[in-house]
């Protein structure tokens, strides 16, 4: 048996067939276990899991707003500390405080709240489930949308060819906060992601994991390809898997030979406007990035 059998994320949620965010939540809870409190930002995951009176969560869970999952989790963490110390609550149990938000809720609107929480040193793990656009509102670009991807607000037109800015590197910005643990992960590598969650939770202080999760609706591919596409993102070097522990950078998965980005791009509708020239440009950009990381 490779994976823990306890299901803390219940079926019956309203995620699309093949939803990558649901896989994030399920794997996350398998790694974290039941002594966990989740602070969830507004977004797909929050909406699809909690239409009153139904919840997919079997751990204590709170949602307050879009831009403040980290600030809300700060309050939860502080309260646990105070209640343990002053009133002997939770009987010395170690409780994992985990904030989770999408790329919009993390890299854009929740960025200040996240930076504040990380800088203040709260004992919490922040999970950014990255599907590279605002999927809940219907696929609008976020700062985490990659170069040339088409979204409803960065459409592929005759003058502008999809997103005109490169993907914001949130994991590296978090690393610049000097926090003890930062990692990237992808749902297509569940052992790697779960190991990183467990490691993060074993470290005291602020931790950050950015997990890539392909989105069938937003990226435009058949639902059975969610894992395959995630794997290609890693195999092409488009989304490198690494961790930074106490400032030390380490690649956690090195493809034997990087696949051409074309294999990844051609499977998705959001890139279907790309010409061979465009793909060449992206390949060059990724080659340079990978060189920097030693991939």
């Amino acid at each position: 048996m490779q994976f823990p059998r306890e299901e803390l994320f219940a079926p019956g949620h309203r995620g699309c067939a093949g939803c990558g965010a649901a896989i994030v939540a399920r794997l996350l809870l398998k790694a974290a276990g039941k002594d966990t409190i989740i602070s969830n930002a507004t977004g797909c995951l929050e909406v699809m899991t909690t239409p009153y009176p139904e919840t997919a969560w079997r751990v204590p869970w709170i949602h307050t707003a879009f831009e403040n999952a980290a600030a809300t989790a700060s309050g939860v963490e502080a309260a646990i500390k105070a209640l343990k110390r002053k009133r002997g609550k939770y009987k010395d149990k170690k409780i994992n405080v985990i904030a989770i938000g999408g790329d919009g809720g993390t890299a854009d609107i929740g960025f200040q709240s996240l930076s504040g929480a990380m800088e203040r040193g709260h004992d919490m793990l922040y999970i950014m489930y990255d599907n590279e656009a605002y999927m809940n509102t219907g696929i609008q670009r976020s700062s985490s949308t990659p170069f040339m991807a088409a979204t409803t607000t960065s459409p592929a037109g005759s003058k502008i060819r999809g997103e005109d800015r490169p993907k914001k590197d949130v994991a590296m910005i978090m690393a610049a906060h000097g926090i003890p643990y930062v990692a990237t992960a992808c749902i297509s590598y569940p052992e790697d992601f779960m190991r990183k969650v467990k490691k993060a939770l074993s470290i005291e202080g602020p931790k950050f994991i950015q997990v890539l999760q392909p989105c069938t609706t937003g990226w435009g591919y058949p639902p059975e390809k969610t894992i395959e596409i995630g794997r290609l993102a890693v195999e092409t070097g488009i989304f490198p898997l690494y961790e930074i522990e106490n400032g030390e950078f380490r690649i956690t998965y090195k493809p034997a030979k990087r696949k051409p980005v074309k294999e990844y791009l051609k499977m998705q509708k959001r890139y279907r406007h790309l010409t061979d020239e465009d793909i060449e440009r992206i390949q060059k950009y990724i080659d340079e990035k990978c060189k920097l990381l030693g991939l």
Partner: peptide, 14 residues
Amino acid sequence: AIIYEPGSSIKNKT
């Protein structure tokens, strides 16, 4: 609107 029954989404047969 607090939900007191964990995992109650199982009522929704998808």
